[in-house]
């Protein structure tokens, strides 16, 4: 039996090979990561080029459901640091898409009203924000993995006015850990105005100093 298996492997070895992922996918993935990284680190010049390459690579598939991932990503990244945009380029593509995930995601980052439900990793966040349970929202945000997604979740809570100091501090620590100076700046500003509006002037001063430090 053992010897037979030896003979069998003999031939199997000769006939095995594996197929790598298509190059558009590998390239798009790298460009997307580079885009997020450079954008968050405040290197907009490079971010733009990376985004263009990301988009070009997705365009190769000619599939609207895949192509839309580029504008959606861009829009979500901007959304995560409170840059208001109406996601025009994604909106143009939305009627052509078939995938509900893309549509839901689009609504998630553009809708001015609170959503009732959402699929995927933001489900808990959306649900707790819809009832505006801040504690639960904060817990839901901490459970979202990956830095960018945490920021997106936090930004969603902030936009729908269902947040507190902890929400902002959590997002700030994620941004700072990753070295995303641009995101850190955005959340510091939010934090400052939060302290000002809640009358904690000494804390607001501290935050202002931090803002000044990084804007030098």
């Amino acid at each position: 039996m053992k010897k037979l298996s030896v003979l069998v492997t003999f031939f199997i070895i000769l006939s095995c090979s594996s197929t790598p992922a298509p190059s558009w996918q590998a390239n798009a993935h790298i460009q997307m990561e580079n885009y997020i990284e450079t954008f968050m680190s405040g290197k907009e010049n490079f971010a733009e080029t990376h985004y263009e390459r990301f988009y070009e690579n997705l365009l190769l598939t000619a599939d609207p459901d895949i192509i839309i991932k580029a504008p959606l990503t861009k829009c979500a990244i901007e959304f995560s640091i409170f840059i208001e945009s109406n996601c025009e380029s994604a909106a143009e593509l939305i009627p052509m898409t078939k995938d509900d995930e893309n549509r839901n995601y689009f609504r998630f980052i553009t809708s001015s009203r609170k959503l009732d439900t959402m699929t995927g990793k933001y489900r808990r966040v959306v649900e707790s924000v819809s009832k505006c349970d801040v504690e639960r929202t904060n817990r839901a945000i901490s459970r979202v993995e990956e830095g960018v997604s945490t920021l997106i979740a936090a930004s969603y809570a902030v936009r729908h006015n269902c947040y507190n100091e902890d929400t902002l501090l959590k997002a700030l620590s994620v941004a700072s850990e990753n070295g995303w100076i641009k995101a850190s700046g955005a959340y510091l500003e939010k934090l400052e105005s939060y302290y000002v509006s809640s009358g904690q002037s000494s804390k607001a001063d501290e935050v202002r100093k931090r803002i000044e430090l990084i804007s030098k």
Binding site: K2, K3, L4, V6, L7, F10, L14
Partner: peptide, 14 residues
Amino acid sequence: NLGLSEFLGDIIVV
């Protein structure tokens, strides 16, 4: 040629 010298003995015996 196939680089399977390790199994030489087994193959010959079988």
